[in-house]
Nucleic acid binder design. Structure first.
Length: 191
DNA sequence: TAGCAGATACCTT
DNA sequence: AAGGTATCTGCTA
């Protein structure tokens, strides 16, 4: 593995950061009100992969991340799936198919995959590609907002961020729950 | 309708 | 083989 690049930008009320390889493949993305937390998460990953610190230099994908946060559509990004498990990979294929403005549930993904909802939650929680793989579009079966961690601890703030992201994408809410009309049912695994 | 376990759970290291 | 879990369902009151 060659050298990695780390780029951060601020936008809205967050810091956004990406870690990319020499071929512009995304290894990890993170966003948080604290720039230090973003940097820590990305440098930790880089160190694990290369044993060295990544080079700090601007990268367009960081800007793209802000666009995603604003609810805009961006070009397809190539992800480096070398450091995730096959199960995570399968789960993320489903996440990437959830249309903007829709949501699905942990249980529905589990059913489609013939796995269990808690296992799916486990994989979703460890998504290394915040925003690029839209894990915020997965909610509990009671259609409440559910949990979100933003590469940190689960908190009220991060869950509010999840709700805000969904609202930006046009998901209708009522009494703190998404409307059933926005549910998207995942199809069976594709070959 | 809110709270609480069980699921012979499911995946990861 | 143990440990973690961003869940779901049905049963209780």
């Amino acid at each position: 593995m060659g050298s990695l690049k780390l780029s951060t930008v601020s936008g809205e009320k967050f810091w956004f950061g990406v870690l990319v390889d020499e071929k512009d493949r995304l290894l990890e993305s993170a966003f948080n009100p604290s720039r230090k937390k973003v940097m820590d998460s990305l440098t930790r990953r880089a160190r694990k992969v290369t044993g060295t610190r990544p080079a700090l230099q601007p990268h367009p994908l960081a800007r793209e991340m802000v666009n995603l946060y604003k609810g805009r559509r961006v070009r397809r990004v190539s992800l480096d799936a070398q450091y995730i498990t096959p199960f995570q990979n399968r789960v993320y294929q489903y996440l990437r198919r959830i249309p903007k403005g829709r949501v699905t549930t942990y249980g529905m993904i589990a059913e489609a995959m013939k796995s269990g909802p808690r296992a799916v939650g486990n994989a979703v929680a460890t998504n290394p590609w915040s925003l690029f793989v839209p894990c915020h579009r997965v909610v509990p079966s009671d259609l409440s907002v559910g949990n979100y961690s933003m590469n940190g601890r689960i908190s009220h703030d991060s869950c509010a961020t999840k709700a805000a992201l969904l609202e930006k994408e046009g998901v209708p809410f009522q009494d703190g729950k998404v409307l059933g009309s926005s549910l998207w049912k995942p199809g069976q695994a594709r070959p």
